[in-house]
Amino acid sequence: MGILLSGSDIDRAIKRISHEIIEHNQGVSNLVLMGIPTRGAYLAERICKFITEIEGAVGCGVLDITLHRDDLRLRPPKPILPTKMPPGGIEGKDLVLVDDVLFSGRTIRAALDAIGELGRPKSVQLAVLVDRGHRELPIRADFVGKNIPTSISESVKVHLREYDSEDLVELIK
């Protein structure tokens, strides 16, 4: 078990991702964020707050992907979590999806389907705190906090103070 990112590393990564998002989208006028529960939703809120401070107000929502998972029939059913639309909706917007760890890409595949139920954004981008590799689908992140090469048998655990009482990313072998 090893610490991959400390609390201040996470802060810096969020700030850098926020700047990159503003840069890439040339401002925030058409921008909305949606976090994938549980931790992706808190990360999206943090990014939203920082962008709002440095550039201007941006809408933030929550996107539950449970009903679109492709592994439903392999595990016990999970409760559905609330999906919250960002103020102003997503129709025609540049939508940035936010999640904590990018791994197989299956969650993001489900998220793209879930977005399809809600409307038709102009573009969909992806921001993740950690990219640990081992993709099983042709999906990549536009904004990455840290790339961490891992073995398939390891796992990456993100702790956020809103949910886990501290900010920390650790590698569990």
Binding site: L67, L72, R73, L74, P76, P77, K78, I80
Partner: peptide, 13 residues
């Protein structure tokens, strides 16, 4: 959804 959404009992991974 709650009754059918997951794997049948006994076949869960």
């Amino acid at each position: 959804y709650e009754l059918l959404g997951g794997a049948p009992i006994g076949e869960q991974r």
